[in-house]
């Protein structure tokens, strides 16, 4: 620190226009110039999955990543999770660069990815065990989470004994047990039937409102994103870059039948359809793909 200049003795010049009491939005996750190319042995050039993404996610925000299927939105999420390394660019969490997976970013998978040999309770306690939380404390936390996600009476059940919706509740509780800074949800309700899906969306919002976790939620359902998100980040066909960002701004709970809902859905859908068509056109010309 010897090389730094001594701090200039001056009063703060910029007066904050916002009243000090209002919670200030602080960036939690910042992705800058993110690129990801998958190396393919068979091809001379790799395939680009993510191209030049800059994205800032605020503390406590609910962000949906929407894009045509196979566009690379899952890859983007996995980079944030630390499960994939970007080819260039970086992601920071509270200013610190992400170099690998960690307990501060909880992930929820479309296929649930529960440990089949563990009971519901022991699935939830996995992260706590890894962090050597004492048994009594583990038990208390998992008990609270079982209540929170509505799995009372199923603590001793194994995943195979549960329905898809219930399994994903375990997945959510398991991620929450670590008290992560952000929940990364990869099409978490994609394999559920429509009714369960709607129910789970409502439940997720309830839990989100209670825990105030930041959520990054990948989906290809426009309806789902408009129902859930503060902000919808629409991605282009592969390679994924940001096409548009939509602030939803409808107070919750949202009515799927309301005109505001329809208006936003319309807008997102228009952009998405454009990208889906573009993606299909790319596929029709095999030589044109990167």
């Amino acid at each position: 620190m010897s090389g730094t200049k001594p701090p200039a003795p001056q009063a703060p010049q910029v007066t904050d226009p916002l009243p000090a009491r209002l919670p200030q939005p602080a960036p939690l996750i910042v992705a800058s110039h993110l690129n990801k190319t998958f190396e393919r042995i068979a091809q001379e050039h790799g395939t680009d999955a993510v191209r030049d993404i800059d994205l800032t996610i605020q503390e406590g925000e609910f962000v949906c990543l929407v894009g045509p299927s196979g566009c690379g939105k899952t890859t983007l999420l996995r980079i944030i999770a630390g499960l994939e390394r970007p080819t260039s660019g970086e992601v920071t969490l509270r200013g610190k660069a992400i170099h690998g997976p960690g307990a501060d970013r909880g992930m929820i998978f479309q296929s649930f990815a529960l440990f089949p040999w563990r009971t519901v309770r022991r699935n939830i306690e996995f992260g706590l065990e890894v962090r050597r939380v004492p048994r009594a404390e583990r038990h208390r936390i998992s008990g609270e989470l079982i209540d929170l996600v509505g799995l009372q009476g199923f603590a001793a059940a194994h995943p195979r004994e549960l329905s898809g919706g219930m399994q994903q509740r375990v997945g959510l509780a398991r991620a929450l047990a670590n008290d992560p800074a952000v929940l990364l949800m990869d099409e978490p309700f994609g394999s559920l039937d429509a009714q369960t899906r709607n129910l789970m969306q409502t439940e997720l919002l309830k839990i989100w409102e209670r825990t105030r976790k930041t959520v990054v939620f990948v989906t290809h359902s426009v309806d789902e994103s408009v129902f859930l998100a503060d902000r919808i980040v629409l991605l282009t066909a592969r390679p994924a870059s940001i096409k548009s960002i939509v602030e939803v701004g409808i107070p919750r709970p949202r009515d799927r039948a309301s005109p505001e809902f329809a208006a936003i859905r319309q807008r997102v859908l228009r952009d998405l359809t454009e990208e889906v068509l573009r993606g299909m056109a790319q596929q029709d010309r095999p030589g044109a793909v990167e």
Partner: peptide, 28 residues
């Protein structure tokens, strides 16, 4: 299932934990 390894890692498991809390019980 590589997803289980991913899940364990995002829950804070290091290589050793992945080995004896995921690989080993999965292989039993």
């Amino acid at each position: 299932d590589p997803m289980l390894v991913d899940a364990a890692q995002t829950l804070g498991a290091g290589r050793l934990h992945v080995f004896y809390k995921v690989i080993l019980p999965a292989v039993v």
